[in-house]
Design a protein around this nucleic acid. Structure first.
Lengths: 130, 130
DNA sequence: CTGGATCCTAGAAGATACTG
DNA sequence: CAGTATCTTCTAGGATCCAG
């Protein structure tokens, strides 16, 4: 491992890749993208009820962010009462496979991770006791 | 979209998958896993210097969390001065492909995302001006 | 060298009330 | 219906100092 390899991680802190991945890291983006990927076009309240425990504010904020990133498109119908529909853009859909790889890993290996956490807790507890 | 589909998202809030993905979402885990995946075994200070702008605390905290999850193994050599080496466990290595898919997407589509953000800023700025 | 312990702050997230 | 506005709470993360 020499200095030459350092640049492989164009990634450090304020790196743009980081920037994009931060969106993946926030609390609701992955879920919303997955839902839109699965269900197609959805209205605001459909999303709200489907997710259940998201606040109206966070749903709005997250959708706005996804829209700004070009992952979700927002269509407003100027009716009374208003209707707004959200769906993935092609860019958003292109993210689905990568996301699926991640969630599949999580689903498959969750038991191992949880077991490891349990075990780790046991080990550190013993250390504290001594 | 009926109620039957709801359970497809075992995912909502306190779901365990969520739990695992949260680790991916934090600021340093992906980077550390990627580095260990690329460079193999590394010492604490090697990681610290390589990442550069991570605080000692966050490096320790993140490594502990990854160790607890069973993704990283920690080996301490009781010497003076102490030496500690970190490397991926098989479980940690099994995460690499999924992670790579995500980072590759980010690298490839970052320009589109950044452009979209620029454009979005322009659109909303105009709204505010009117 | 590796990291524990403490204090502190910015920003994420929630609750609630109001509106075109 | 689909938000906005405001307030409060919570926590990830950074800075700093200390220790085996």
């Amino acid at each position: 491992m020499t200095e030459g390899n350092f640049k492989k991680f164009e990634f450090y802190d304020d790196c743009p890749v980081r920037n994009v991945l931060d969106r993946v890291g926030d609390k609701w983006s992955i879920l919303i993208i997955s839902i839109l990927g699965e269900c197609g076009t959805m209205r605001f309240n459909q999303l709200h009820q489907l997710i259940g425990n998201i606040s109206q504010k966070m749903l709005t904020v997250t959708l706005r962010a996804l829209e700004a990133d070009g992952l979700v498109s927002r269509t407003m119908y100027p009716e009374i009462p208003p209707r707004v529909e959200y769906c993935l853009t092609p860019l958003g859909e292109s993210l689905l496979p990568a996301l699926e790889g991640l969630t599949r890993w999580a689903a498959e290996n969750m038991p191992a991770v949880l077991a490891s956490r349990q075990d780790y807790k046991g080990r550190t507890a013993r250390v504290h006791a001594s």
